[in-house]
Amino acid sequence: MKNKGMTKSTHQAYLNDACRFLATVNEAETRRITRLDVMRFLSECREKGAGDETRNRKLSSLRSFFKALIEMEHQDGNPAAMIAKSKQEKNRIPVYLEENELERLLQAIQGKYYARNVAIVLLMAFAGLRVGEVHRMNVQDFRQDGSVHILGKGRKWRVIPLPDPLQRVLREALAERRDVRQGKEQPFFVSQFGRRLSIRMIQTVADDTIKLLKEAMPALADKKLSSHKLRHSFATMQIRSGTDIRTLQELLGHASIGTTQIYTHIDNRQLKEAMNNISAKIPITRRLK
């Protein structure tokens, strides 16, 4: 997985899945593991509460594990290869924050490294970056023309032209940035110890700010918000502003346009107009008020 350039978080997740599976086969030789062993493991995961998405990731982990064993000539067959993936919900409406809620979110940002934290939240909420993409950003990725070059999923680069207000915030964060103590890389976001800010710390910055937002806006108390929901909020704003689906796909770095299309269900003007066209034709009886 390292040779293929997969992220550390994906690497760790796949490794954990493979180890947990192997713990269920009673130390059997991998050559003796069958399709039934894999199916039994996935069924147990479902019984313990794993959803379709999690189950499919575990299946992908095991497929990759056995494929690697085949490549290393340790065995001939892949017992996970022919097992069908679970059907996942399609067009599920994503959780997001409204524009006024995002404004209150920015007002809630606190901490010693204020400019850095504002830049982190803005990049997720107003540029659509994933947590891992914020983590991997280097100083040279913020170009003089005001764009950022982002290394996304699948080791694919994309260019995002930033609006002026966001450029100013990034420059301020860069001016207050601590010097890096070791390594040749120049990470954009640096911890108090002079190292690249970890994914967990970036999530903490967002989660702590969201917690303060919920305290300020009790109506959001039951809303399942996280750092990734800020990316959903960005996509929602773009759709409502009239951005076409192909452009949004490029901005978000989605490999498939099908992934981007979930956001079209949030504010689809054509659907509303179609329904409004028949509103005058609905036969309401006079007895109803």
Rank of each mutant, 00 (worst) to 15 (best):
A115G: 07
V190H: 04
G128F: 09
T7L: 03
Y114K: 08
L166F: 04
R57K: 05
E103N: 08
L102A: 05
R158H: 00
P218H: 02
E101D: 07
K90M: 06
I120R: 02
L213F: 05
L59M: 11
S43I: 13
R143I: 00
Y114L: 13
L122N: 10
L251E: 04
S226T: 10
R287A: 15
H135M: 09
G49A: 07
D222E: 15
E47C: 08
S226G: 09
A173I: 02
G253D: 04
V180E: 03
T264G: 00
T247D: 13
N138A: 04
R31I: 14
Y96A: 04
N91P: 08
R181A: 09
T30I: 15
I278T: 14
S256A: 03
L69V: 09
V139W: 12
I93Q: 14
R35P: 05
T34Y: 10
R32T: 13
A206P: 08
P218Q: 01
L151D: 04
G5W: 04
K229W: 12
H254C: 11
F188K: 00
W157A: 11
A175N: 12
V25C: 11
K87P: 00
D267T: 04
K229S: 15
Q144V: 09
E71K: 14
V190S: 06
T259K: 06
G128T: 01
H254M: 12
R177E: 00
L225R: 06
I266E: 10
I282G: 02
Q186M: 13
P283I: 05
K90Q: 09
I93S: 12
K67S: 15
G49C: 10
R57G: 09
T204S: 10
N56R: 02
H149T: 08
L106M: 15
E71A: 13
S279P: 04
T7R: 15
Q203T: 06
Q261M: 10
E273M: 10
R92C: 06
F66K: 02
L162I: 09
A18W: 14
F193S: 12
N91C: 11
R92L: 09
L162G: 01
P161K: 04
I202K: 01
E98H: 15
V159M: 11
L162Q: 02
K67I: 01
H228C: 07
T34C: 07
Q182A: 11
C19K: 14
I266D: 03
A28S: 14
E103F: 05
V169D: 01
R181L: 13
L220G: 02
R246M: 14
A50V: 08
L213T: 06
K272E: 12
V205A: 02
K156Y: 03
H228E: 01
Y113A: 08
Q203K: 06
E101H: 07
A23L: 11
N100W: 11
M82T: 12
E47K: 12
R287Q: 15
M217P: 00
A216Q: 13
F41E: 14
I257D: 03
L102N: 03
N91G: 14
R20V: 07
D244R: 01
L42N: 03
Q261R: 04
L105K: 00
E215W: 10
L230M: 03
G253Y: 02
L225Y: 00
A219K: 14
